[in-house]
């Protein structure tokens, strides 16, 4: 077990190192950020001064070593445009993204599981076919377009839901959250739903396919033959078997959801890290871009580790130390 975790951590560090090299040098190939945000009256001397201030006058490899040294101390550099440490900007923005992603996850499970369950139990009914067709569309359609349609319907025509921002915030344990106020919930509804669609489609499909397989198994027949009530058979005996693939896939997808939040946040002007990244890209704020990437990749690696552990809790057959490589 300890060896397994250690091995995973080493693996993760290697991935991180490769990513820093790729991202850092990749970003440095592109244009000079100073040209973008220095005022047009700025002379050559003034430009040089900015370059020195930002450390851009040194060779790239030196910049990278400095960057790596700082990284070891948890410092990812200062944002060119905001003038504050990139990490503090990310920490400031991240709760908004996390709230959005978690809300999407809750929606995906809360809506996807029952729909998938229904489609699995009554595969021949019309409603099931509609559910499956919708999940197919959820898979195919670019989510930004769904976002647009939602805005058009609920903001522009019906005027029920606000199209931008987070709304009224409440502080919980030092985190600002939207979902505890009515106004915040109204702001959260559309972006969270948009972001959840892909996951929801996946949950529907996994649940349906899994349920159809599980329901023909002997152990479900055995539970029924023992008179175990149907709600218990479906809600626990079958459900626990279904949750294994669902948790695995959702765990792997959750990182993708954080990444896809870039799109959702841009549409709904949700002030999270995704919106920040797009803004940073448009002004070539290198440290901020690099910091975001390192942050997201680190989160990925941690998530995968958590999923492995969660998986072993759900499925007793998986032995962490022995089975996993």
């Amino acid at each position: 077990m300890a060896e397994f975790i250690l091995r995973r951590i080493l693996q993760a560090l290697l991935v991180l190192f490769v990513m820093t090299v790729l991202v850092f040098f990749g970003i440095h190939v592109i244009g000079n950020p100073v040209d973008l945000f220095a005022s047009s009256e700025c002379t050559k001397a003034c430009l040089d001064e900015i370059m020195v201030n930002l450390g851009l006058d040194r060779p790239v490899w030196q910049q990278y070593l400095i960057f790596l040294g700082n990284l070891a101390e948890g410092d990812l550099g200062r944002s060119f445009t905001h003038g504050v440490p990139a990490m503090s900007l990310i920490w400031e923005r991240f709760p908004a993204t996390l709230e959005l992603a978690v809300a999407a996850l809750v929606l995906a499970l809360g809506i996807g599981l029952p729909l998938g369950f229904y489609a699995g139990l009554r595969p021949e009914s019309i409603l099931s076919k509609v559910i499956m067709a919708l999940s197919m569309i959820g898979f195919s359609v670019p989510i930004f377009w769904i976002g647009l349609i939602l805005i058009l319907t609920f903001s522009v025509y019906l005027g029920w839901l606000p199209a931008i921002g987070r709304g009224e915030l409440v502080s919980v344990l030092g985190l600002e959250v939207s979902f505890l106020t009515l106004d915040g919930l109204r702001h959260l509804a559309m972006p969270a739903f948009t972001l959840s669609l892909l996951m929801m489609s996946m949950v529907i499909r996994l649940t349906r396919a899994g349920l159809r397989e599980v329901m023909t198994s002997d152990y479900i027949r055995f539970a029924r033959a023992n008179g175990v009530p149907e709600y218990r058979v479906l809600g626990w005996h079958a459900m626990k078997n279904l949750l294994i693939p669902i948790v695995t896939v959702l765990g792997m997808e959750f990182g993708g959801v954080i990444a896809f939040a870039v799109v959702t946040e841009s549409i709904f002007s949700w002030p999270g890290v995704g919106k920040m990244l797009i803004d940073a890209i448009s002004v070539l704020d290198r440290p901020l871009i690099v910091a975001y990437l390192i942050f997201v990749v680190t989160m990925f690696v941690l998530l995968n580790l958590v999923i492995d552990i969660l998986y072993s809790l759900l499925d007793p057959r998986v032995r962490l130390g022995a089975g996993a490589v």
């Binding site: 002997d218 152990y219 479900i220 055995f222 005996h237 078997n241 007793p316």
Partner: peptide
């Protein structure tokens, strides 16, 4: 088949 009769995750 006793391998299949008991629910593997309970």
């Amino acid at each position: 088949d006793p391998m299949m009769t008991l629910n593997p995750v309970l």
